Amino acid sequence: MIPTEGNDLMAKYMLLIYGDAAQWEAMTPDERAAHDARHAAFREAAGPRVAGGEELEFAPNATTLRAGVTGEPITTDGPFLETKEALGEYYLVEAADLDEVLRLAALLPEVHASHSAVEIRPVVFHG
């Protein structure tokens, strides 16, 4: 929980948006515009509860850092896991509870597409 204006306590939730990059790349300009409009509607509805968020480059542009055989860090191209659905975007949202986050996240187009999903994960507060 984090303190907010008026000393109310709000929790932070990370909304991790996964999907098939091939599906996103195949969108027509009209489909992309509709997709972007749904994200704009989400941001409008969430207002100041959105504490951050960005669209990410496609998974093949990722670099993964992990321990090598000797324990020294090594880098590899791409994401850690081989999967059809990859992390494509995220939002950091402050909300009173999970129910509020679920109502907001339901506005995201990835919740309604067959190739994507939104993972909602509470953020741990260490304060």
Rank of each mutant, 00 (worst) to 15 (best):
R32Y: 09
P60H: 07
G71L: 05
Q23V: 13
H126Q: 08
Q23G: 07
V124N: 08
E100V: 10
A40I: 13
R43C: 13
A45S: 04
Y91I: 03
I74V: 11
P29F: 03
R121H: 11
D77L: 03
G127D: 14
D99A: 10
A86N: 09
R103F: 07
A113N: 08
Y13C: 07
E55R: 12
T70N: 10
L92H: 10
L92F: 09
T76E: 03
G127K: 05
L15S: 04
E100N: 14
A67C: 08
A26N: 13
P122Q: 12
I17L: 00
A62W: 02
A33N: 08
L81F: 11
A51P: 00
A62H: 03
E44F: 09
G19K: 02
V101W: 01
L15I: 00
G88Q: 09
V93Q: 06
N7S: 12
A41P: 03
V111Q: 01
L92M: 13
S114Q: 15
T83F: 07
V111F: 03
F80L: 10
I120F: 01
E44H: 11
V123P: 02
T83A: 14
D30N: 12
E82N: 13
I74P: 00
V111T: 05
G88E: 04
E5N: 08
V93K: 02
H126W: 15
G68C: 03
Q23N: 08
E94G: 09
T4E: 09
A113T: 10
N61T: 10
I2G: 04
R49L: 12
A96E: 15
H115N: 13
E110N: 03
A105E: 01
L9K: 11
G6L: 12
R49A: 11
A59N: 04
P122W: 11
A33M: 06
A37K: 10
E89V: 02
A41M: 08
T64S: 05
E72F: 05
A105M: 01
A22Q: 15
P48F: 00
L56C: 03
R66I: 07
A59M: 00
S114Y: 12
N7K: 11
F58V: 11
S114K: 15
V69H: 06
V69S: 15
A33V: 01
G88V: 03
T75E: 14
L107H: 04
G71F: 04
E72H: 10
P48N: 04
G52R: 04
T75N: 06
G19A: 06
P48V: 02
D77C: 07
V124Y: 09
A33C: 05
P109I: 00
G71R: 05
A95H: 08
G47L: 08
D77P: 04
A86K: 13
L65H: 02
